[in-house]
Amino acid sequence: MAPAIIETNGLTRSYGDICALKPLDLQVPEGEWLSVMGHSGSGKSTFMNLVGGLDRPTAGSLKVGGEDLLMLSEDGLARFRREFVGIIFQQHHLVPYLTAVENVMLAQYFHSVPDEAEARSALERVGLGHRLKNRPGELSGGEQQRVCIARAIINSPKLLLGDEPTGNLDHKSTVMVMELLKELRAEERFTVIMVTHNQEVATWGDRTIYLDDGVLVREERMRS
């Protein structure tokens, strides 16, 4: 088995009395595609945000890519996010006043230096070579999600996180986005963690874990 890129021990996140994530021990080997399922409020996003360095655990240990996230300062977490993680949200979350290519360049800008040619070719890879200069409001939901994917992969992250990236898409667009992610993973060899409500989407992964009320209740390996 490949070495673990994510390693949690007793990882916990509570909000006052509410324990959104109960002590969780989990290992994710490098290169794995992990699907996370569970009903609403079961702690999927909570888990995701912790792994992506957007949130801090209240107890336990969390190592991602050899980095102990508990030891990082706020700016250290920001650096971790831009260098290590690509994130795709359910709502598209693009900057509304920037064009598609500028939205991709924004991630480059925070990471190092913006490179328009590179940003353009990333958009071409997700099939949006013809919509470079459009603003998010002028793109369909599926197109916006593909801009997000281009932005997420632009800095060659080791870890790609998707919190219901296809939650707002119809079947056809969903398949298109999933195929795209699969292709990109084949080339870039990043690890994928994908939260989803959709059983079919989950089957694109190597393994699925099920959360219930903040507890990992079941896990299932897909036949390869």
Partner: peptide
């Protein structure tokens, strides 16, 4: 604030 949150999520630090 959504725009700021987004910039932070993709890795902008306080200085940026």
């Amino acid at each position: 604030s959504p725009e700021i949150a987004l910039m932070k999520a993709v890795g902008a630090d306080r200085f940026q």
